[in-house]
């Protein structure tokens, strides 16, 4: 599904990712953990196609395509979804309108007709029910005036509606109370399918009580310094990130 080889990335001359390697197979859930400022969001942004980074070396392949040559919207239409760490507000644009546009752009790309209004409404209702979300969020403008928790839930909701093949959730669990955390985890678990993959970026092991990852990576100082099974998360929780320093160099 996703194959990253020797990826080095810098911004304004400062190197952030250093010869990073990552392989995610179909159907897998990967967790990426690591302290603040180690490059987790940078990695997510690179996969999604943010353009203010310099890619110094390496390659990224997604479903066999050279991802680095694709526009961000094309990547999205090919099934990549990024749940942002800090979702931005778009005043005046209702969630309904936004998602309908997104969905129809995706359909157009795949040669399908736009979704009818009634099918769209049905899809929205279905996903709300699935995620146990209140319905009023979709009438409001995209993220405008949403609380931190609402923004995160809204990312999961968008993921559910757009049905991506590769979802990257960047600290979607941060700042959530336990109920919201369950909604997020529930969403990820329900969307877990043999054909889809998920990368869960998290700072805490807590989320991994609800989302059981197949693989856990530890990102430290721009490199993946350790990879293991779900027990790695517990070990990390116990010993703290300091413990990693010895692995880093």
């Amino acid at each position: 599904m996703l194959s990253i080889k020797n990826l080095s990335v810098s911004i304004e001359g400062k190197q952030i990712l250093k010869k990073l390697n990552l392989e995610v197979e179909k159907g897998e859930v990967h967790a990426i953990m690591g302290p603040n400022g180690t490059g987790k969001s940078t990695l997510a942004s690179i996969i999604a196609g943010r353009d203010f980074f310099d890619i110094d070396e390496g390659e990224v392949f997604y479903k066999g395509q050279n991802l680095l040559e694709m526009d961000p919207e094309e990547r999205a239409r090919e099934g990549i979804f990024l749940g942002f760490q800090y979702p931005v507000e778009i005043p005046g644009v209702s969630m309904n309108n936004f998602l309908r546009t997104a969905l129809n752009e995706q359909r157009k790309y795949h040669g399908l007709d736009p979704m009818s209004a009634s099918d769209f409404i049905a899809r929205m209702e279905e996903k709300k029910k699935m995620l146990d979300m209140q319905s009023n969020l979709t009438k409001r403008s995209v993220n405008e005036g949403f609380s931190g928790g609402e923004k995160k839930k809204n990312e999961i909701f968008q993921m559910a509606v757009l049905e991506p093949q590769l979802a990257i959730l960047d600290e979607t669990d941060s700042g959530l109370d336990i109920d919201a955390l369950k909604i997020v985890a529930n969403g990820v678990n329900k969307l877990r399918k043999p054909d889809n993959s998920t990368i869960v970026i998290t700072h805490y092991q807590r989320l991994l009580d609800y989302i059981i990852p197949d693989v856990v990576h530890v990102l430290y100082d721009g490199r993946i310094v350790k990879t293991g099974g779900k027990e790695l998360a517990l070990e990390l929780e116990e010993k703290g990130y300091e413990w990693l320093k010895e692995h880093a160099y």
Partner: peptide, 10 residues
């Protein structure tokens, strides 16, 4: 970029 990431071009 948020829009782009949802498949909506600039």
């Amino acid at each position: 970029f948020y829009c782009n990431q949802r498949g909506i071009d600039t």
